[in-house]
Design a protein around this nucleic acid. Structure first.
Lengths: 217, 217, 217, 217
DNA sequence: TATGAATGAGTGTTCATTCAT
DNA sequence: AATGAATGAACACTCATTCAT
């Protein structure tokens, strides 16, 4: 017990440590240099492992990126979960959903850069990058479910729900990218409250069948 | 003198033709392969000119990209101008503004890819790429003016107008990128009418001081 | 007379002017940027003529360089002629010969750079660059004649005279290049008087059969 | 532990071998083709390594050249050291110093070409190439010390010593370059004995305060 | 398992030269 | 005679990936 098992465990722990280092280093380097200027060497230097070690954990650079995108989408989905019940009205809940995404991304610019740049690769060639594309689909499907939950299921066809989810996802990602571009820093996501509530308000007004004439507002 | 002018003209025409070929080829190749996989050689092949000719017209690959972004922003601004008076109500005019952008971009996927990927480069390092950044600022400032024109000037501070313009720009660019990602093709921008009007409606409701209590709807 | 001849003359003058501009511009650019960084375009810009004009006057870049080297050697030879009779003693005349070369080159750094760099090309491959090599041979042969004249003809075999001339030429060119390297500017060629007279003194002492025991010093 | 060291050693030996191959190949190729026609690819072919390997050992082509110049200057200095005590009289010692340089360079034409061509680059722009320039300064400073040692320290100011060292260095490098140029081959450096002793004689006569009137000869 | 030395296809860029005008 | 637009071979350098240790 004091000999065999811990040794194996220690080896495994070391391996897990290397893996984790590479993941974190990868995200950090991408955040600083962007996808294209991120080289395997820079990642392994930042992770403080040998260059060969990278290929003991990942099949390729693209493989690491897939991992990172998966983690990023996980985080985006998780972030929303906490705010799901913050409000009672559909408008408030939709606004909370959007603001939750914005705040999470606002705190982690690496994620904005990663997800933006990978999206840029995917919209280029419809046939390629299926594994990566699935992650974005997962994110949009999550938003579809959330929108339906908030707005009420029967009012939306599958296609309409997807269109709306794309609008929500696009609003979040796009607004943030322009904010960063214009302000040159992370920006204050609180300042985005007004357009967010406006968007949420409009969506509820147009998508939720008004229960009473005055409820739409 | 009766000879010199045509001579010069012929040569200049040839030069202009090469330039135009390179610009169009550049946009086309970027649309197919993305910024990073677009090589100068691929561009010159597509333009059917020698590789050296590229550098007779542009200082560098980045220089061409700057040109293309400028043209793209010009097109985006011009596209909107035609729809400026299509509607009378603020909501309708705002929706028309957004739909105009979407339709123009929907027709020209190369522009979506170009502007998306360049934005991806710019949000990475705040200090670099100033020339390119100026183009995006020009676009956002244009949207600021349009929003103010539509919503009425006094209601918006400079900062709020900028935030709103970023939201509009982001909504357009982001929604389109997710649509392309999900549908795998250009998508039908008409299907986006509903979220667009929702957004426009919400913005007017929240930004325009209501003239009468029922007007917001 | 007022018509035909002057017109031809004017054309010829223009052509001669272009030629002269190119020669001067070539020398100037080489002086500033060195042989390798001197491009035909930079020369034609400096000469304020079109790029094609260069090839109306010279077969190639190498052709211009040949011209310049020829002019440089001419100048070196001419510079010496004036000082030929400045002194009576062999030591003084030899020192005057060397100092004359040094002063001419000291005033025209472009010439130092040109002749040094071209020599660098020629010592690399014995078989190539024959036309250029002839210019340096002309220079060395000139020095052979001068040395013989100063030291007295019968005392030197052809081979020894050539070796001595190489030493003189090498002393001049080499000393100047190290001076410029160490001092970072043209340097004061007057400061070189002491090593020059030392060299001249030694050569006379060792090459001239002493007429009297005390004359060697 | 008993295994780790040999492993590391084997890899390191391989690396050192590649490095040495590149250095030798670099010098050889420069000797054959000159600085400008020496391409990284030609070097790696001659060294029988992949092109990328070059950049695993050197930052750039210039970096290799710096290395080679350093080695060349080292060799020049080392070559002299052995002959330092070959003679007793100042004239003999100075001549031995110069002949030592000439014989070393006469045996290694690559070094002549390398040092000549690099000097050609450095005399062009006073401000650039500081790292390379330092090597030449090191060489000249070495010659300053040697001259002082041979001629006796008190007789020379710092500035005069530097001028004399430049003259010695220039005499060596320049004479050899003209010899190679004229003879088309390595030449017999023994044939240079006469001008060398003449130079040495003259320097001693003019720089060493004569102990007795007849000693100068 | 971890390493890092080696690789070579691929990239942006330069420049001497040609030639239609 | 003069021009300058076009050309493409050539170059320095990068980087994802492999593999012997």
């Amino acid at each position: 017990m004091t000999e065999a098992t811990p040794r194996q465990t220690r080896t495994k722990r070391r391996r897990a440590q290397s893996f984790e280092n590479l993941v974190q280093a990868g995200l950090a380097v991408i955040g600083q240099r962007g996808l294209h200027e991120t080289t395997v060497e820079r990642i392994t230097e930042a992770a403080d492992v040998g260059k060969g070690t990278f290929y003991a954990h990942f099949d390729s650079k693209d493989d690491l990126i897939s991992h990172l995108v998966r983690l990023g989408v996980d985080e985006l989905i998780a972030a929303t979960a906490t705010q799901r019940r913050a409000d009672r009205t559909p408008t408030g809940r939709l606004a909370a959903l959007i603001l939750g995404q914005l705040q999470t991304l606002g705190r982690r610019r690496e994620l904005v850069i990663l997800l933006h740049q990978v999206r840029g690769l995917l919209i280029r060639q419809p046939e390629a990058g299926d594994r990566l594309r699935q992650e974005y689909r997962r994110y949009v499907r999550f938003l579809m479910r959330e929108c339906r939950r908030i707005l009420g299921v029967p009012s939306l066809s599958q296609s309409e729900a997807r269109t709306l989810a794309c609008a929500v996802a696009g609003f979040v990602a796009g607004t943030l990218s322009f904010e960063i571009l214009m302000r040159g820093h992370r920006g204050n996501t609180l300042a985005l409250t007004r357009p967010v509530t406006a968007f949420a308000h409009g969506v509820v007004a147009r998508y939720v069948p008004s229960r009473s004439p005055t409820n739409g507002c």
